[in-house]
Design a protein around this nucleic acid. Structure first.
Length: 492
RNA sequence: CGGGGCGUAGCGUAGCCCGGUUAUCGCGCCUGCUUUGGGAGCAGGAGGUCGCAAGUUCGAAUCUUGCCGCCCCGACCA
């Protein structure tokens, strides 16, 4: 957290973009608003995906895949959902190009190849999935239906930001169908817990579980649950959502089932998702001015070994020892890379792996071999220590755990320092302007008040925390009675 | 779509206000030697539609007009 907190968000944008570009996670692309995820960034995503996928399967879910295209008539079936996403849909209208007779060597859209019905490129898949579920669900014996898909979606946002908001992004979306409301609500909350555990245990990023106000609710949902994280510039970031959809989609797509008493009823639904936005969250939660800091549990490279040598003879000696160490480290499951690339000098490599956020760096040279030690540098604190070569792998396993814990604690302390209770309008405005983070305040529960607050301060209600302490109070804006505090913040 | 900034070699830039030889500098790249414990040194070398188009001018990177693109801020949003 060496980056000084500043109200000038432009500095932060620059900082953030540099971290991603120099860290080798992603690149700008030829398509406006889209990005290229580079191999290192994709490896990070794969690690996240693998962990999440296992968590989904452990909770009884299976993967499937549904089409990218949604016929417009299906898309518009659930009105609120359609309305909510209409402004940001990419639409396919034609299926063929042809040579442009007036412009040699150029192609044009063939007007004869106009689709009878436009295809919406999914901004989310509820429509196509529920249209499919209709054919899969007849009886209570078909329930619950617990399906997840890993996919790309397109939301044609006006302004984009690497990882945090791109026109196309990768995500997973779970879509479940249940016989009872209680079961669906339980599923919604269960998946929220899965996300929270992933964020805290793997991303080392503390999150607040809560429920969204009506204004911030997913279009078409009865309730939207979320995990909210705090970034180092003091802005909040929604890191994952889990929606209780009620019977809205079942009704829109006519998905009914017979229960044990042979009564016909609409099924109850949930949907939940996290995206490559999590990578943006990771970057903004932990990095410093020297580059990324990737938590060991998700790092594509957990340990990098840099050899230091003069001449082939020394190189051979170092190689020999490193080969042994590599075997030991790999045997404990550590993802280790030996960078003996001759083209880059050690100092270059040190800086490079710091930019990439590799948690632990080991430097080993002839001098160390004589003393039976290596130099171990940890990325999070930049602390360097000599470790004995004997039992090195055990030491490193311990160190990786310590780093994981340490960056989590650091982020948690930062958050604790930046949740401020406020009981007056003046105080609210002052804290928002002068102090980063969440503001905990009373709210009268109305959308009107929330809208006014947003208009005046740009702050929104991030969530109403689950298991919130009940406390009598007065709304900071309207003065009307309130039973609990909610969390406000400016957000990404 | 509004406001601001920018576009000169692979990257980052100077020059532009006040037009004038062969377009500046750094990084990177190539060759050679020396180096290697925190982004190496020396020597030599290659690399340019100055975003695009039109205009003004004897002459345009520089002035004028139009267009395109990118970044940042706002509206939108995960």
């Amino acid at each position: 957290m060496s980056k000084e907190i500043t109200s000038r968000s432009q500095d932060y944008s620059q900082w953030y973009n540099d971290l991603i570009l120099k860290g080798g996670l992603a690149d700008y692309s030829a398509v406006r608003g889209c990005m290229v995820i580079k191999p290192y960034g994709y490896a990070l995503w794969e690690n996240m995906r693998d962990v999440l996928d296992k968590m989904f399967k452990d909770t009884g879910h299976v993967n499937a895949y549904f089409p990218l295209f949604v016929p417009k008539s299906l898309f518009e079936a659930e009105e609120k959902n359609a309305e909510g996403f209409a402004k940001e849909c990419a639409v396919v209208t034609h299926y063929r190009l042809k040579n442009d007779p007036d412009n040699k060597g150029k192609l044009m859209v063939d007007p004869e190849a106009k689709l009878e019905e436009e295809l919406v490129i999914r901004p989310t898949s509820e429509a196509i999935i529920w249209n499919t579920y209709k054919g899969w669900i007849q009886s209570y014996r078909d329930l619950p239906l617990l399906i997840n898909q890993w996919a790309n979606v397109v939301r044609w946002e006006m302004r984009t930001r690497l990882f945090l908001r791109t026109a196309e992004f990768l995500w997973q979306e779970g879509h479940t169908a249940h016989a009872t409301k209680d079961e669906a609500v339980a599923e919604t909350k269960q998946m929220l817990d899965v996300y929270a555990e992933f964020a805290e245990t793997y991303m080392a990023m503390p999150v607040i579980k809560g429920v969204k106000s009506a204004n911030e609710r997913f279009a078409g949902a009865e309730d939207t649950y979320c995990i909210e994280a705090l970034m180092q510039d003091g802005k909040a970031l929604q890191a994952g959502t889990s929606h209780f959809l009620g019977q809205n989609f079942a009704k829109a797509f006519d998905v009914k089932f017979s229960d044990k008493e042979n009564k016909l009823d609409y099924v109850w639904a949930t949907s939940w998702g996290v995206s490559t936005r999590l990578i943006g969250a990771l970057v903004m939660a932990h990095s410093d001015d020297d580059g990324l800091i990737i938590p060991p549990k998700l790092a594509p490279i957990q340990v990098v070994i840099v050899p230091i040598f003069k001449g082939d003879e020394q190189k051979a000696m170092v190689d020999e020892k490193v080969n042994v160490l590599m075997k030991e480290l790999k045997a404990t499951g550590i993802k280790v890379k030996y960078d003996d690339n001759d083209n880059a000098r050690p100092g270059w490599k040190f800086a490079e792996y710091e930019l990439k956020g590799v948690p632990v760096r080991i430097a080993i040279g002839a001098r160390d071999l004589q003393n039976n030690i290596v130099e171990v540098a940890r990325r999070d604190t930049k602390e360097k220590k000599n470790y004995s070569i004997d039992g090195l792998s055990e030491s490193i396993v311990g160190l990786l755990d310590e780093i994981q814990q340490s960056i989590y604690n650091r982020a948690k302390e930062f958050r604790a320092e930046n949740i401020t209770k406020v009981d007056s309008w003046d105080g609210f405005v002052k804290v928002l302007d002068e102090k980063p983070g969440f503001v905990s305040a009373h709210w009268d529960g109305t959308s009107e008040t929330e809208d006014k607050i947003k208009e005046m301060t740009k702050a929104t209600i991030r969530c109403i925390p689950l298991n919130n302490e009940q406390e009598e109070g007065k709304c900071i804006l309207s003065g009307n009675p309130s039973k609990e505090r909610v969390l406000f913040a400016r957000a990404y």
